[in-house]
Deep mutational scan, measured.
Amino acid sequence: QSFTCPYCGKMGYTETSLQEHVTSEHAETSTEVICPICAALPGGDPNHVTDDFAAHLTLEHR
């Protein structure tokens, strides 16, 4: 399964590499985005909106 960065649209990330990408490239970004990992999880929330995606990844998807 691969994920797309909700900020810049780059594709092909794993859960881990998406977290690394967001932390390095978009750490200061506070735009509201939908978490693509939550959306892909069975029973996950397809509409989970977060305005601190880097922190959300760290808390929810480590």
Rank of each mutant, 00 (worst) to 15 (best):
N47V: 08
F53M: 02
H48F: 14
D45S: 13
G44W: 04
T29W: 07
T58W: 07
S30M: 06
I34G: 07
F3N: 02
L57P: 02
T50P: 07
P42T: 06
E15I: 14
H21E: 07
C8K: 00
T58L: 11
H48A: 15
D51M: 14
T23G: 09
G43K: 10
G44H: 15
P46R: 09
V22L: 04
A54R: 04
G43F: 04
L18Q: 06
S24T: 12
A54E: 05
P6H: 01
P36R: 03
S2T: 02
Y7V: 14
Y7T: 10
S24R: 11
G9L: 13
Y7W: 03
T14I: 08
G12T: 03
M11L: 08
I34R: 06
T58N: 14
L41S: 12
F3H: 06
F3P: 01
E60A: 11
V22Y: 05
D45M: 06
Y7Q: 13
L59V: 10
G9K: 13
F53N: 02
M11G: 12
A40W: 03
H26D: 06
V33E: 06
L59S: 13
C35Q: 04
I37D: 03
C5D: 00
L41D: 15
D51T: 14
R62C: 01
S30K: 15
S24F: 05
D45N: 11
D45L: 07
D45T: 10
S2K: 12
T16R: 14
E60Q: 13
T31Y: 10
A39N: 10
L18S: 06
H61Q: 02
H48S: 11
M11R: 09
E25H: 09
V49D: 01
G9S: 08
P6S: 01
T58D: 08
E15N: 06
Y7H: 03
I34N: 02
P46S: 15
A39I: 08
D45W: 06
M11V: 12
H61G: 02
T29P: 06
F3M: 02
T16V: 10
N47M: 07
T4N: 12
S17D: 11
T14K: 12
T31D: 05
P6I: 01
C35W: 02
G44C: 12
N47W: 07
H21S: 03
A27C: 09
S17N: 06
E25N: 02
G12D: 13
A54Q: 09
D52V: 00
T50R: 12
G12E: 04
E32F: 03
V33G: 03
T31C: 03
G12P: 15
T14Y: 01
E32I: 06
E32Y: 03
T50H: 06
R62Q: 10
V33N: 05
C35N: 05
A39Q: 10
S2R: 10
A54C: 07
S30C: 12
E20N: 07
S24E: 10
T31H: 15
P42Q: 07
R62N: 12
D51C: 08
L41A: 13
E15K: 02
K10G: 12
T29H: 06
H56I: 01
T16W: 05
Y13M: 08
V49G: 07
T31E: 08
A54I: 10
R62W: 08
H26F: 02
P6N: 01
C35H: 04
T50M: 04
H48V: 15
T50Y: 04
M11K: 07
T14F: 04
E32D: 06
T31A: 05
A55H: 11
G9F: 13
H56F: 00
A27I: 12
A40Y: 05
T16E: 07
E60D: 13
A39E: 12
I34V: 13
L57D: 01
H26S: 06
T31N: 15
I34W: 01
C5W: 00
T16G: 10
I37Q: 05
M11W: 08
F3D: 03
H61T: 01
H21V: 03
G43E: 14
T29V: 15
S2D: 12
T29S: 12
S30N: 09
G43R: 11
N47E: 14
H61D: 01
D52R: 14
